[in-house]
Design a protein around this nucleic acid. Structure first.
Lengths: 339, 339
DNA sequence: CATGCTTGCTCAATCGATGAAGCAAGAATT
DNA sequence: AATTCTTGCTTCATCGATTGAGCAAGCATG
């Protein structure tokens, strides 16, 4: 049975037979510890060549089943529809592979039920470690994993039962709000409270950003208008309808706004274009998250770019060190204006 | 050993002991064919409850190792940095799960070596089927998989050795070019050839889009300017420097352009802002691919949105039917202008 | 020549789930 | 009462890779 007609996968037993040796020798050679197992270089060479010729691919299932550690590392992520999560996933894959780990990612669409199902699936894959990114209920996931002896690290949103790596949401929001307030003052000559739109009022990041938002107002001597705090969820449609409802009960609309993610910004911008409000004078905007095209939308938008490389370095720092103490690492984001 | 202190995972043997029954009964109950195996409803109930209590999670490794088919379906994807691939991945996960399959995705950053490595990793996971999305060398991947008896489907870029699902690149480019030409004429009162920028000159999609671009010019009676065909690669930096080089040898610059992806558009837009060219009069743009914020950049941009839901339905149609004949399904994209 | 050490392998148990084959007890049929 | 059928399980081999234990041959040492 040669390479072109074969339909079954080549196993170490096939290679052993071809090489006239034992499966155990083949295994030792192919997983790299043939020296430790005192296989001769000559045999190792022969087996390596044969494996290549036959297009041998390790059976991960069999290998992981037998081994103590799987070297599989899982990540759950809410969405793939923005640059922030996109780069998290890309970086994660890269750093995992650099360490000889096998990354597995799954997307939960911000659905708590799917989150739990996804975590279970990860356990089924025997992941050594799970990164829960932006999970709505990170502690639930940590508990599930802990029961199976799997460590968890929270990313983006913190939890109470595992180490977390998040942005300095307070600091980023403080600076972002300062800038938008300043832009408003420069542009319109008056200090007025900003609109806050997007995000869930219950999630840690949103609460921290609201805190930064409030403190920046206080600093500037501006009183926050409580009717302008619209934590309506992240989805574009939700931001859009929140804007619509606001416009129905309020006029004039605020001069400036703090938008809690690019994805909410999508809805806000859509509403602005569709409704015709702000047609005379563009609002001063601040967006917590970065997108290259948003940056090009005009010089009236400030953005906070979360420092994904640093965040993932922190995550792998925790993994590499084996630390399990429940800390929250806060990574400062980058406040930039591409005017 | 109870749930809270346990550190080892619960197996069917643990459950069997707790239920006072055999592992084989537990297995039958948990994988759903207990009726076929004539297990009583009473025992099934007891085992199900126990499994839940103990937080049992199937060991995929053991399960897949034993079974004929793994029910794992793999996808390799070039990047996560744009909406097109992002929605492909999200849709893929959803449709796979709907069918009781386990999706595994990996990103290759347009690196041919990583592509092959990723395909090998997928084989190691014992995938039943692999979707190669936007692969630089799809046939290489098909060969690797075929040797292991794994079927492949090409998505986004076609291959010669497996069924492919792609956009109607010619049709989309034809219509897009028509519109940009018309916009130029309306805006500037003259018919001039457009710039084509982005993409690899050797990839099928780019070639087809170039063909549509040329035919639209011919239709309009405009001669294509060969010095304006810049298939410099997809990366923003490449598009940016291609624009720079063009500007150094040509003046005035073309009135309109066909940009071959949002990711190339990122570079083009950056160059436009930085260089100060086009400061007086914005160029008429057409972009093959869609992004919500690009749509808001102004009314001088036309976009083609590839029909991701239809494309993935086609992919799973092929999977479900088991078809292996080498066809190319072309899905018409949506040409839209959000002015 | 007996003993021990090194080299270079092989043997066989094991990981957890699966399912074909088999078996015991009771019900139904002749 | 003897036979067959049905129900509800259990037993055990198996998937492919890993690894501790063991073994034979060759060499060195006393």
């Amino acid at each position: 049975m040669n390479r072109t007609t074969q339909t079954k996968r080549t196993t170490i037993y096939d290679l052993a037979e071809l090489a006239g040796t034992s499966a155990s020798a083949v295994s030792a050679v192919l997983n790299g510890n043939w020296k430790k197992r005192r296989i001769s270089a000559k045999l190792a060479d022969k087996i390596t060549k044969l494996a290549e010729e036959q297009g041998y691919a390790l059976n991960m299932q069999a290998s992981v089943l037998r081994r103590e550690r799987s070297k599989i590392i899982g990540m759950i992520v809410p969405k793939y529809d923005n640059r922030y999560f996109g780069s998290i996933v890309e970086q994660f894959e890269t750093l995992a592979r650099e360490r000889g780990l096998f990354p597995i990612i799954t997307c939960t669409r911000r659905d708590p039920a799917l989150e739990v199902e996804a975590a279970r699936a990860m356990l089924s894959y025997q992941v050594d470690c799970l990164i829960a990114t932006g999970a709505t209920d990170p502690d639930r996931i940590v508990d599930l994993c802990a029961a199976a002896g799997v460590r968890t690290i929270n990313l983006d949103l913190p939890g109470a039962r595992a180490p977390s790596v998040i942005s300095d949401n307070y600091g980023g929001a403080l600076e972002l709000t300062r800038r938008v307030l300043a832009n408003c003052e420069k542009e319109y000559g008056e200090k007025t409270p900003l609109l806050f739109v997007g995000g869930r009022g219950t999630d840690h990041n949103t609460m921290e950003r609201v805190r930064g938002f409030r403190d920046a107002h206080a600093e500037a001597g501006v009183t926050v208008d409580e009717t302008l705090m619209l934590t309506c969820g992240y989805a574009p449609e939700k931001a859009e309808s929140a804007m619509q409802q606001l416009a129905e009960r309020l006029s004039p609309l605020p001069r400036g706004m703090f938008v809690n993610s690019t994805i909410s910004l999508e809805g806000v911008m859509r509403w602005i274009r569709r409704s015709g409000h702000y047609a005379d004078r563009v609002p001063q905007l601040g967006c917590f998250d970065w997108d290259p095209f948003v940056a090009m939308l005009g010089d009236h938008i400030e953005m906070v770019r979360q420092d994904v490389p640093k965040m993932l370095e922190a995550v792998f720092g925790i993994i590499d060190s084996g630390a399990t103490d429940i800390t929250v690492v806060q990574v400062p984001p980058i406040v930039e204006k591409i005017g």
